[in-house]
Amino acid sequence: MAELKITNLCKTYEGTVDAVKDFNLEAKDGEFIVIVGPSGCGKSTTLRMIAGLEQPSAGSILLDGTSIDHLPPQKRDMAMIFQNYALYENMTAFENMAFPLKVRGVKKAEIASKVTAVAETLKISELLNRRPGALSGGEKQRVAMGRAIVRQPKLFLMDEPLSNLDAKMRLALREEIRQLQRRTGVTTIYVTHDQGEAMALADRVVVMDQGRIRQIGTPRELYSNPGDPFVASFFGNLPMNLWEDGDMICGVRPEDISLSKSFVQDWEKATLLTGYFNGMQWIGEVRCKEGRFTVCADWEMKQEQTIYMHCPEDKIHRWQQK
């Protein structure tokens, strides 16, 4: 239940380059913000600064209009979910979830009723007496989520919460995180390196690279109007095809290229280098006059096959080369 405003946040480690540089973001009440970028781009550092676990070198953070720069983490009223779950090994699942209430001096009966209620929504009621050592990865992360929502924090912070899970569990929990956030309405900052996760979860996505924000926008905006080649190639299930044309960089998404097995007037002729089926469609690599392209179609692609390809002009993205 809070608005977050971050201005000119910077983090410089002694003797190294800027880990985070001029980070500006305003998150509206109840908004789901995903910060995405390759590893080492400064996204986790940013999250840790919001949490108060790391001291910013410059800049300020406002929560509901009040500065929280001087507050230690325990006074910020935020809840965080970690990649490695960070559960208290010496406590049961119940005690883990009760911990944030216990340290606040909440009465025992109230703790019990709150924890049981949260456990029910997360479908972990049967696990409450177990210690983290006896839980699977997915169950551990559910307990960690329970620990986060058992009190209504002002902000959820999530640091790659799904990265340690297998693919199936990742999809299931991703959906649960989304529903949980919608239901509780808690403003959320979520960090990941996975563009698919960012697309699926975010109201707005912040793309970071080398400590700087490249672009902020809804998943749709980032997909159809990427601000630069980095953002363009970062989003989409298949990598965007990029080539240079004079002082411009051009790009086209594989799904925007039309393909034909037979001759079509004015279409470009190309030869397939490889082709494979990914479960939904056929993906191929071709060599054409602009370079190596990734293409896709719903018919079988074979090596050495000759195809004809075409891309409508309005689907080509162009950026001035720097």
């Binding site: 208290y88 090994e89 944030p100």
Partner: peptide, 22 residues
């Protein structure tokens, strides 16, 4: 795990509470 200490801080535990409980 240093993240466990971070989690405890965010859960609102004071220095003493972290010392005796974690």
């Amino acid at each position: 795990d240093p993240q466990v200490q971070s989690a405890a801080k965010l859960d609102g535990a004071s220095g003493f509470q972290r010392l005796f409980r974690i």
